[in-house]
């Protein structure tokens, strides 16, 4: 989207004071065919994520890959050190004494998986992201306290400032507000 065609606002935000209404509203918004939508809650509400169409995440796969890489890397690091780079006979033990390599392999598997989990989550979520237009919403500070919000972005093909506002107002929110860029 070029700057010249940028819509005047980022979107419309409907504010709710309980999770049940917010989830019902998010479901209606999704059913109405809006797709560039989001919802905000002060704690994880699984139904809310489901309502806006998030049914699964890539996290398990990322963690699996991190774990496998950590484990293989850990094992071959030890193999490289003791068999290839500096073979040293210690107490007549075989150079490739694999049982002794297991504890470090295990630890590095966990480390790889945990690093992949945290940094993968942050990367997919696009964090850290110091500025975001939704923070311009009045009352948005309450999204980290006790309010629930449903957002329709103005880039959504179905978005129409008046029609969408009327539609959101019909869902029983406390308030519907414009979100400035």
């Amino acid at each position: 989207m070029k700057k010249s065609t940028r819509p005047p606002t980022y979107g419309l935000m409907a504010e709710f004071d309980n999770p049940t209404d917010a989830v019902a509203a998010a479901e209606r918004v999704y059913e109405a065919g809006y797709r560039r939508i989001d919802a905000f809650s002060p704690y994880p509400v699984e139904a809310l994520s489901e309502a806006i169409g998030v049914h699964s995440t890539k996290m398990p796969l990322i963690v699996l890959i991190g774990g496998v890489l950590g484990g293989l890397g850990g094992y071959f690091m030890q193999y490289y050190v003791h068999v290839i780079n500096y073979p040293l006979n210690v107490g007549g033990k075989p150079l490739h004494s694999w049982p002794a390599f297991i504890p470090v392999t295990f630890e590095l598997t966990i480390l790889g998986a945990a690093l992949a989990a945290v940094f993968g989550m942050l990367a997919l979520n696009g964090l850290p992201e110091p500025y975001h237009p939704v923070f311009n919403t009045p009352n948005f500070a309450l999204a980290s306290r006790d309010r629930f919000f449903v957002l329709v972005e103005s880039l959504d093909p179905k978005f129409d400032r008046d029609a969408t506002r009327a539609f959101l107002n019909s869902l029983g929110p406390r308030e519907v507000t414009d979100v400035q860029h």
Binding site: P42, V45, S49, P60, A114, V134, S144
Partner: peptide, 25 residues
Amino acid sequence: ALGWRGSAKHWARYEATYLLLAGLA
């Protein structure tokens, strides 16, 4: 806070990550 805004999309990944970390720990 890294710009956390409580987006439901973020929470879904966050919850998955938190559970996976617990499973790893």
